[in-house]
Every structure is written in structure tokens, then in C-alpha cells.
Design a protein around this nucleic acid. Sequence first.
RNA 1: GCUAGGGUGGCUGAGCGGUUUAGGCGACGGGCUGCAGACCCGUUACACUGGGGUUCGAAUCCCUACCCUAGCUCCA
Length: 394
Amino acid sequence: MQIFNTKVGWKEEFIPQQPGFVRAYVCGPTVYDYCHIGHARTYINFDVLKRYMMASGLEFLHVQNFTDVDDKITARAVEAGLAPLALADRFIEEYFRDMDALNVKRATVYAKASDYIPKIVGITEDLLKKEAAYRSGNTVFFDVGRAGGFGELVKDIEGSVKDRLEKGTKRGPFDFVLWRQGGENEQAWESPLGRGRPGWHTECVAMAITNLGETLDIHWGGMDLIYPHHECEAAIAKALTGKTFVRYWLHNNFVLMTGKKMSKSTGRLVYIRDVLKRHSPEALRLFLLSKNYREQIEYSEERLAGAERSLESIMGGARAAMDWGRGPEMSDCVKEYSGMFFNALDDDLETGQTLALLERLSWEMTGGSKGKDFTGAAKIYDAAESILGIRLGR
RNA sequence: GCUAGGGUGGCUGAGCGGUUUAGGCGACGGGCUGCAGACCCGUUACACUGGGGUUCGAAUCCCUACCCUAGCUCCA
């Protein structure tokens, strides 16, 4: 299949390093709040990619993390009067509640950053030894300059950063924290680096490499993670192993609300569970798949209502398909639709096209086209359920 | 500045080389209703930013210009 690799900036044929076996890492949420529609988009689109690849016969090792070591967690835990990790665990449960409702398949392995502290410390010490990191005050920084600079994902770092960067106590403006000695109320662990906590980027490298090996086939996440998170991860991994860290970097675009990115920090967001009070999970899933994952998608109540109508018409088609039997043979017309359905998925996961096809097919079958032969159409609806993950309630 | 996407009928929004329409909203006509609403049926838009090019044929591919959106060390 063709897939858009952020590293090169265009679509490439996807070929796993080990034939028939895919190693994939997905950046999970920082667990200090409920998930919103933007999170849903990220995990649902990856879910479809995974289902499609598995349907194509690939074995799939899917590792996903929860960031449970983070200043925001500490802050929320203090507010809630809970231990930071207790707060995090609570929101991990809520994450599963939401994703299960949306029919997102579970990962093979879920990793929590707090379980990887020794590994993270080890990596940091290793980087110090390799002189890709240095101490400054109470902090260990990654030395971007000595590690050969950025460039994995952001080709022109100087030109692409909007504002002037503060250098502070760092050697270079792009250097970032690997370990910071922490205060009393914060999450902190004893280590040879001093009692403290790790930086975000090292967490993901540790979890990915431990569970998937030094080279991943796929690393998926929201576009907002390209810089700095994924760029920093790549720099760390490169300094650490010298090997290719990620073969295909995949990033999904945002969900917008009234023209701006949905985000926790701006309060411009809708929680999954609130949408599910008004709409079916199938409609939400359909809505989020109605555009290719690399396009922006505008959220609104009207669009959700539109998705609900699309769902109804597709469900009508799915019922009509039952009347044509469930035999293995397909009419020419159905073969054509089936071919287009899989071609769309094969072309960088064009889920919007698959849904358009399903709507058109449904329209034809429920009376739009008289006299055509739709023998075998049920198989297409079966594929829609198993790959797109939208239950059609037959 | 850098990166990724767009510019389609009154609006929203599909379409990804060709004959038959996306769909939705709206509008119009009708049905059903004591009237309205909801609902049902029907009618309605022959549109594709400008300029080049490829082609027998382009909204659809290529080039170019203009305009728009989002993001750019909190973020999925």
C-alpha cells in the first residue's frame, strides 16, 4: 500500500522490515483528562490502518504508551488530592471506556512511562557517555548540535520555528531536557542522575525500543507531535543506536472547531463521551473517517447529524445487500465496487472515498438503480464493518 | 519564514480522466394535517479561482499566478 511518510514528504510503498510482520508504535495521550474528538481521530485512523494491514495478511505488533509522568499530571493530581499515578490510572481507565465505545481494537502492549524509569535513566546516562548530552545546573540536556542537529522530520529548523528561542542555561537553543531534578511535590525518582523526573521525549524512545526493538516500521501520532516531540525522539534514538529509528513516520491532521484546532489548552474541545450522549458511536466513527487522515476536519453538530444520515443510508444498503444472498460469488458491478473500496484504502488510507463508495452503492441498491445485479454486495459491507470498524447492525 | 492542505451551484460538501444523479440544507410544487411543524413524494442548481499545457476528451493530470485555512518547543 502507499502511505505518506512525513520523513520524506510523499507517499511511499509500505514494506515492513520483516516480511509479513509490522512493528508499530503509537503516541498515546497524556492521561490527565478525558479524551476529546481529536484523540478519537488519531486512534480511530490508526485503528483502520491496523485493521486493513491485518486484513491484508500482515501480523501486527502494536505498542501504545500512556504518558503518566508529566507536569500536567502533577498539577491535576494536586487539585484532585490524589497521587499523580493514581490520577493517571483513573484516566487510563476512562481512555479505555471511550475507545471501547468507539470500537477501537486494543493494542498488543500498553506501556506506561512510569514503568520505564530505569530504562530512561539508562538511556540518559548512555547519552552523557556518548557526549550527546550534558549537565547544566539541575538538568541534563540533550545536545542537539553535537548529536548532528535535527532534520529527521523538520528539514529547516531555523526557518520553521516561528519565534526566537530562549537559550537559557542551554548550550544550543534547540537543546531539550532529558532529566530534571525535581522538587518535593512533584513526581520524582531516585537515580544516579539525582532525584528527579525524565523529559517527555526520552519516555517514548524507551518504551518504543524496549517493546519493538531499535527500528520501528511505523510511528503514528497527531501532527502536533512532529515538532518537537518526534523530532527529539529521532535525535535521541539516532545518538543512542545509530540505526534507523523509524521507517515510516505517519501523522494525522487535526479536528478543528470553528476554524481552529481542537485543544485542551484553549478549552476549544468536545469530549468523546459528551458526543456519545447525542450521537451513536458509529456516526462519530463515520464522521472522523469521512476525510483522509491527513486533511483537516471541521467538527460541528450539523456535520455529526450529517454523519448520522450517511450511516442510515449505508445501513439501508447493508440490509438490501442481504437480499442478494451471502454467497461467495460477486456480480461484475459488485466486483467493481469492491475493487474501488480496496484501492481507496491502499492509497494512503482514503477512508473518505470508501465511505463515498458505500453511500453510492447503498443508494443504488435501495432503489437508485433498477435492474442491476448486486450479488455478493454483502461482502463489501462485511469489509466495511471489519476494516472501517463501523457496525452496520444487520 | 517553514510544513501540510484547500479554492465546486444560494449555502454546506462529494467527485481524483469520459457516458445517469453525489448527498445534505435551502427554495419551489404537491401529499398528509382543522392550521402549522414534523414526515412523505416530486421539482430545482448543468457549477467547478485566473492563465497556460498534456489529451480525441479535464473540475479531475502537469506548470504558473492569485487568494484562503491550519500548525510551527502545552498538545492527538
